[in-house]
Each structure stands twice: as C-alpha cells, then as structure tokens.
Write a protein that binds this DNA or RNA. Structure first.
Lengths: 197, 197
DNA sequence: GAACTACGTGTACAATCGTACAGGTTCAGG
DNA sequence: CCTGAACCTGTACGATTGTACACGTAGTTC
C-alpha cells in the first residue's frame, strides 16, 4: 500500500501545481507542460496521472475552489455579529462573492470569470463550480444575517447576479474603479433586496 | 481608384465571413484559416488584408456588433408605446440586452460572454464593446420609458448587471431555464429600480 | 531471488496555429 | 506598349499543443 500512497502524493503535488498555474496564469495556461514545469516533474508524469487535459484542469479547479472556499469560510465565521450600514453590507457581499483584491485587478477578474464561461462550455466542470457557488450563497446569507438583515428578505440570487454582472461589465467599459462601482450598485440593490430592515 | 475599391470589397467580404465564424463557432474559432475557408478565399488573402489575428478578430467584432445593434434599434423603434406589466418590462430588458434566443441556448451564451472576458484580456477590443454597451443602455432606457416607467427612476447599470450576472451564473448552475430565471430576477429588481411607478 | 506490477520518464508524432514571403497576375498611368 | 504598383496566393517555417508509447526502475509478493 505504500506504493499507492506514494503515487497519490505525487498526483496531489501535480494537482497543487496545476492550481497554482490556474491561479497565476489562467485557464488556458494549464497545460501538461506548464504543470509539469511548475511541479518540477517530467512531462510524462502528467500523462501518467491524468487521462487527459480535461481531467487535469478539473483537478486544478477542484483544488483551487476548495482552497478559496475554506479561506472564506474561516473569514466569515470570524465576522462579528453586529448591525451594519448598507454600505458595509454591500462591501461584505462583494468581498465574499469575489474578493476585494480580485475586484481591483483587471487581469485577476479575467482569470476568474473565464472559468464561468469554461464551465458553460464543458459540462464536466459545472458540478464543481455549482457546488462552490452553493456554498458561497450560504456564506452570503450568513454574512447578511450577521449584519442584521432579516433572513427572509434576502434575495441571494439577485445579489449574486448584480455583483457578477457589474464586475463583468467593468471588464468592457474600462471603469477606473470596478470595486467601488460594484459596491455602489450592490448597495442600491440591497435597499430593496437582501437587507430591507 | 477602381483598384482600391476592389480591394476594399474583398476585405469587407473577409470581415463578413469572420463575423459569421465568430457568431457560429465562437471567438477561438476565428483564425486565418477558418475565415479564409468561410469566405472561400486562399489563406494568403487573410494575411494580406489583416496585419494579424488581433486585427482580424477586431474587425469581426465590429461587424457583428454593428449588425446586432442595428437590428435591435429597429426592433425598439417599432415597440408600441404603452404601459406594461412588470413581467413584460422584465422580458423586454432581457430581450434587449441579450435576446431570448441566446438566453435559451447554452452554447450561444458561452459565445456571447466569452467576448466580455476577451475584452478584459485585450484592451484593444474594449472600445468596441464599450461603445456597443452604451448604445444598449440607451435602448434599454428607451424601452422602459416606452413601457411607462419614469426616466429618473431607471437604474440602467443595475438592470444590466442583474441580467448579465444571472445569465452568467446560469452557465454554471445548469439551470433548466435560464431565460425564465433571469426574467424573474430582473422583475424583482424592477420592483425598486427601473420602473417604480 | 525471481517474477510481477506499479511507478516513472524521455521521446516522438500528428495537428494546429500565426505569420512570412517569394513569386505571379492584373490593371491604371505615362 | 510598358512599367510600376496594387492585388493575390501557394507554400513553408517555427512554435505549441495534447497524447501515445516504448522502455527503464523499484518495490511487493511468493
């Protein structure tokens, strides 16, 4: 059994490297060769542990999503439970769904949203992102109730749509400050949905 | 001068073919070879009329956006000016911004939104999409005022974000009916923004 | 210690891509 | 007519990609 354990560890190292490439250089950059170079293993190893590029990208996606989800969960769990202003609520919404750093970095936004498109293209990736999205929705509701909103007044789907849509549009209108623009828009949405009380 | 006119016509035919490929097979499929095949001209012609792939894609994008914009403008101009229900207003919003056919076709949605991501990646494409987006915003406001909404109550940016965000999320959650889900969400948004009266 | 199997990897192949460019053709202007 | 420039195209090069696969190594089992 030590045999298989060693193999699994090697594979895990490859997945980790793939996730790093995905995060740093984007989806298209995740290739057999780039991952092998990142993990400092020979090219042949990637074809030994993964049946094809799709599986490689899928594993990278899984690893990346898990890490992101775990990070966020701890952040939200540590969030103080107190009443917050609409502005503060809006900032938290965007922070949870996308993150401030990403919202402020054009190329990071591109790398983030290209995954949505890719999930639409390749059905095999959909469950991964869908599961992650569900977790985010729960986190979002949690954040809002921790901020003093009535649970039944929260329209998570609308808030998610506003955030993603605003940031996506920021990619094409070249807005100077996507973060600010998105938070403002989300705040307006919150006036009616997500925190009416 | 007949010389240059003939060349321009040839180039225009290439651009038209490129726009067809873009619409049918997506951004990645717009290559020198595919466009040449679509236009039924030799490969060499594409390098003669376009300095590189970026210019080819840009021209295709321009042509596609112009056609789409023109089509929509006539549709909106023909729209009867009468008071409409929130549901009908929501349907019009989604129809103007994305279109019912596209919203119902997963792969068409992918081809549509991958352009947003590409515009974020390549700055040269941003002005094209931004100009088109501005025109759509005007059309959207027009549609809503034609439906009985108060102009000052319309938050175009929010409605755009909701629509795009909802459809983008539909790509990953595998919703059975993205159109319906999006219209419903937009309708909720309209309750407060875009048509409060 | 022999045999078997999981592990590991170097190399190569076929496909696709953007792009360059030599060379040919056509046509307007002198 | 002739000449030069615009128009046109077939071909090929270099790079990159996913993938296959023969071949070697090491560790487990009997």
């Amino acid at each position: 059994m030590a045999r298989q354990a060693r193999g699994a560890a090697r594979r895990a190292a490859l997945v980790e490297a793939a996730a790093r490439v995905l995060d740093r250089d984007g989806l298209a950059a995740v290739s057999h060769r780039s991952v092998a170079a990142e993990a400092q293993v020979p090219l042949g190893s990637t074809t030994y542990y993964f049946s094809g590029r799709e599986e490689l990208v899928g594993a990278a996606l899984d690893a990346w999503l898990s890490a992101e989800e775990q990070r966020l969960t701890t952040v939200v769990a540590a969030l103080a439970r107190r009443r917050r202003s609409p502005r503060a609520r809006a900032e938290l919404v965007v922070e949870v769904l996308v993150g401030r750093d990403r919202a402020a970095d054009q190329s990071a936004l591109v790398r983030y949203y290209e995954r949505f498109v890719e999930a639409g293209r390749l059905r095999a990736h959909r469950p991964r992102l869908a599961r992650s999205r569900t977790a985010y929705d729960a986190l979002l509701a949690d954040v809002l109730t921790r901020s003093g909103a009535a649970p039944e007044g929260i329209d998570v789907r609308l808030l998610t749509a506003v955030t993603d849509g605003s940031l996506l549009n920021a990619l094409i209108d070249g807005a100077p400050d996507p973060w600010e623009q998105t938070v403002t828009t989300v705040e307006r949405a919150l006036r009616c949905h997500g925190a009416p009380n």
